[in-house]
């Protein structure tokens, strides 16, 4: 079974191996800045993988998942504010808070579908955003400066400790998703995306499965947000701005939404472009380098429109086939 996982999810394993050895590359060539970029990639990639459980596999277009990242981040920030520095405790808090919030929001929002679901998830996310903006005690709009959390045994101020902490949690989430997507639960979720009324006619209550998927995805986004706070050493409502929810969706579509590795591939490309495109333009077209978004935007639109399976569609099996079956 373990061997099977290696064979089915080749791309994801390759990415994980590269990420595991990447710091050797950066220390050899003395490019510590790139560790920072890659940590950001891993964090947003993890959140996008979480969102993709509902978005890509369950067919639910949730436009508010950045809110769960925000709640995770504030769990770290507020805990620390009250002197609870233990990072493991903060991760647990993030998971529990996002789990409970996921049940509440999911329970209400999943009664709707289509455009109504998009709007209601966005509305809940905006409510949470303004809730944190209004918390003057924790910096309101300006946010809260914090130290990296204290992960007993793992001092995050030692070089690379934070990198590997993020990496191992990303790897754990990845392995869990590889299993989940092929499990009975994962298969039912993908069946609901394919045809909800048939699934219902088979005696399965779609709401139960969609809600469970929604909660799992919220928890993963919460973990990502909690680590994001340590990485940034700062928490503000910005982390849960609606544009980040949009970024997460673009990342998923860019990478390929019917693949487990899709969101991670999308995060790599999205954030590398964001990092490199301005510099590249300085060399080629200095006049528009300031406005690199002019290139970035159409580029994303092109991939989304023409590469239906996203970037994974190039290496993986056919786009529409259930992820539970295809090699990717």
């Amino acid at each position: 079974m373990v061997l099977d996982l290696f064979k089915k999810f080749t791309t994801l394993w390759i990415i994980l191996v590269v990420l595991a050895f990447f710091p050797i590359f950066t220390s050899t060539f003395d490019l510590p800045f790139w560790n920072d970029v890659v940590m950001r990639i891993m964090l947003l990639g993890m959140a996008a993988m979480g969102l993709n459980i509902v978005f890509g596999f369950g067919g639910m277009v949730s436009f508010g998942h950045a809110a769960f990242m925000g709640v995770g981040a504030y769990c770290a920030g507020i805990s620390q504010y009250y002197g609870l520095d233990n990072g493991w405790y903060q991760l647990l808090m993030s998971a529990v808070s996002c789990g409970i919030l996921g049940i509440m929001i999911g329970f209400l929002a999943l009664r709707t579908s289509g455009i109504y679901f998009i709007m209601i998830t966005l509305a809940f996310a905006q409510m949470l955003y303004f809730f944190f903006v209004s918390l003057e005690q924790f910096g309101g709009d300006d946010g809260l400066i914090m130290d990296r959390s204290d992960f007993i045994f793992i001092d995050l101020y030692e070089p690379l400790r934070l990198y590997y902490l993020i990496f191992f949690i990303l790897a754990a989430v990845s392995i869990m998703l590889m299993l989940l997507i092929r499990s009975r639960f994962g298969v039912i979720l993908q069946a609901i995306k394919s045809n909800e009324s048939r699934v219902e006619a088979m005696g399965l209550n779609p709401l139960k499965f969609k809600l469970t998927g929604y909660v799992i995805s919220a928890v993963i986004c919460g973990l990502s947000g909690c680590l994001f706070a340590s990485w940034q050493e700062f928490v503000s409502p910005d982390i849960m701005h609606w544009t980040r929810s949009g970024d997460l969706m673009i990342i998923i579509i860019l990478g390929g939404l019917t693949y487990v590795a899709g969101p991670l591939v999308g995060a790599i490309v999205f954030l590398l472009l964001e990092e490199l495109l301005p510099d590249l333009l300085h060399v080629v077209f200095p006049s528009i380098a300031e406005n690199w978004m002019i290139i970035f935007g159409p580029l994303l639109i092109a991939v989304v429109l023409f590469g239906k399976g996203g970037l994974m569609g190039v290496v993986g099996n056919r786009f529409t086939r259930p992820a539970a079956r295809k090699d990717q």
């Binding site: 099977d4 299993l179 989940l180 092929r182 009975r184 639960f185 994962g186 298969v187 039912i188 399965l204």
Partner: peptide
Amino acid sequence: DFSVLENAIVAKISHSRKTFRFFKPAF
């Protein structure tokens, strides 16, 4: 989006009542 057998397998999962299983591959 599924194969013929996969359609039947989803029905079989429901029939078995063991639906909330998250690890063992179904297909």
